[in-house]
Design a protein around this nucleic acid. Structure first.
Length: 113
DNA sequence: TACAAGCAATAGT
DNA sequence: ACTATTGCTTGTA
């Protein structure tokens, strides 16, 4: 998996967890954080924001707990965000007004792994 | 809906 | 080593 790119152990852990999310499903920063055993969703967001791997780590499959789209490529709103929405839509995840339309697409972790 | 406080990690100084 | 910043979350008003 990782080569050349130097990432911290925490980042590696976050990427590993995010990779477990199957296409067509999404998770939340807090969910990943709890899965890793940390209490801060911000730390997860930071790790994903600096994700040196692009499609390998589906950072676009991670949204906010309020079903908000969250951010993408360092932007919380803008053209990058619509790309994230497009990626999710392509996977079968529908969004409305910047929020997840169907909460049933939330991935709880600890299920298929 | 809007504001404030708590939380953990990275990057820059 | 310290400070500032961040793709968050939850609680109150």
């Amino acid at each position: 998996m990782n080569k050349g790119k130097k990432v911290t152990a925490f980042q590696q852990r976050v990427y590993d967890a995010v990779r477990l999310i199957p296409a067509g499903y999404v998770s939340t920063y807090g969910g990943v954080a709890r899965f890793l055993g940390v209490r801060s969703a911000r730390a997860v967001g930071q790790a994903l924001r600096r994700n040196p791997f692009a499609p390998q780590v589906p950072c676009h499959r991670v949204i906010a707990s309020s079903l908000a789209i969250g951010g993408f490529n360092g932007r919380r709103r803008g053209a990058e965000i619509r790309r994230k929405l497009a990626l999710l839509a392509a996977e079968g995840v529908a969004f409305e007004r910047g929020r997840l339309k169907d909460a049933g697409r939330l991935w709880n972790f600890r299920k298929g792994s």
